[in-house]
């Protein structure tokens, strides 16, 4: 388990990184935190000729809150995002989900951009971005462009980034104040990739109706799943156990899970139902508690 021969270029700036990527051609790979890529190198499942190392790009390591939108540089470490009060205030779903990403040691090195660009459908970050309608900013030789999360995740481990593009930032709209969030994740061991995870955020108005709700599901399709139909069932309604059950069924219907050694597809579909119900139940219960307080 040793990486195949490769060249390594430590990018000195974004332009340098893009130039190197273009010059190295299709067999180049971008190295962010390395937590997914270096094991793939060691297994020789990835054998890039050149690694373009973004590790020195301080310009991509930032968290900015402009009031409406939170922008996070792609090279910001997951642990930094997870523990940032700014992030917790603007998009509480993100730190809630990041706690399920591997272990602290992984999050110390892994980056938010790396996790998004790796596009593992069982990973938490892509699901958060789908749930919150984030935008992803990419730069390439043709300049920067913005990609909606819904258009970004293409398939299993595939995104719509061009081979010569680098993900530089993600932008997440601020969640309405008073939002509640809940993550229900089922993994075999703490820190493992989810068999299925359901990420939910809701805003419940003063009359007890669901003003806004966002649900996304990880591990249940080749890309993160946004449970639009379930959200439509819920919005504007006062939650009841029956409604929550109906929404959970609708969420599960939106999934398209595969089978692997850890669980068959049917089991994942069952999990999607159960976890969505539990997630929504928590969101509602949290609200009741908050309002009582």
């Amino acid at each position: 388990m040793k990486p195949a021969p490769l060249d390594h270029v430590r990018a000195t700036g974004l332009d340098h990184a893009i130039e190197t990527l273009v010059a190295a051609g299709e067999d180049a790979k971008i190295l962010a935190g390395g937590q997914s890529l270096v094991p793939l190198l060691a297994m020789r499942l990835a054998q890039p000729t050149t690694l373009v190392d973004l590790g020195g790009l301080r310009e991509l390591d930032y968290i900015r809150d402009d009031g409406d939108t939170l922008e996070i540089g792609a090279m910001t470490r997951s642990r930094t995002v997870e523990t940032s009060p700014v992030v917790a205030g603007a998009v509480p779903l993100l730190p809630a989900a990041l706690r399920y990403v591997g272990h602290v040691t992984i999050r110390n090195r892994g980056t938010i951009g790396g996790s998004a660009a790796h596009a593992d459908p069982a990973a938490e970050v892509p699901s958060v971005l789908r749930a919150l309608d984030a935008e992803l900013i990419a730069s390439g030789p043709r300049g920067p462009r913005t990609i909606a999360a819904r258009d970004f995740f293409d398939s299993f481990l595939l995104t719509t980034l061009e081979p010569d593009e680098i993900l530089t930032a993600i932008r997440i709209p601020r969640q309405p104040s008073g939002s509640v969030v809940a993550v229900e994740e089922f993994a075999r061991r703490h820190g493992d990739f989810a068999l299925v995870a359901v990420l939910g955020a809701a805003h419940i108005d003063s009359s007890g109706r669901i003003a806004e709700v966002r649900i996304s599901i990880a591990g249940a399709a080749p890309t993160p799943v946004r449970a639009d139909a379930a959200e439509r069932l819920l919005v504007g309604r006062t939650p009841t156990p029956e409604l929550v059950r109906a929404a959970a069924a609708a969420a599960s219907d939106a999934t398209d899970p595969g089978s692997d050694i850890h669980a068959p597809a049917d089991y994942r579909r069952t999990l999607a139902t159960v976890l969505t119900r539990r997630c929504l139940t928590r969101l509602v219960a949290d609200t009741e508690r908050t309002e009582a307080a």
């Binding site: 388990m1 270096v38 094991p39 090195r109």
Partner: peptide, 27 residues
């Protein structure tokens, strides 16, 4: 394990834990 699961290779890198098997020396 050399794939970032077992934690035996954990070191402190600038005061924070890192898996040294999932980090290249050049990083």
């Amino acid at each position: 394990c050399e794939h970032g699961v077992c934690g035996a290779c954990t070191v402190l890198l600038d005061g924070r834990t890192a898996r040294s098997c999932c980090t290249l020396a050049v990083q």
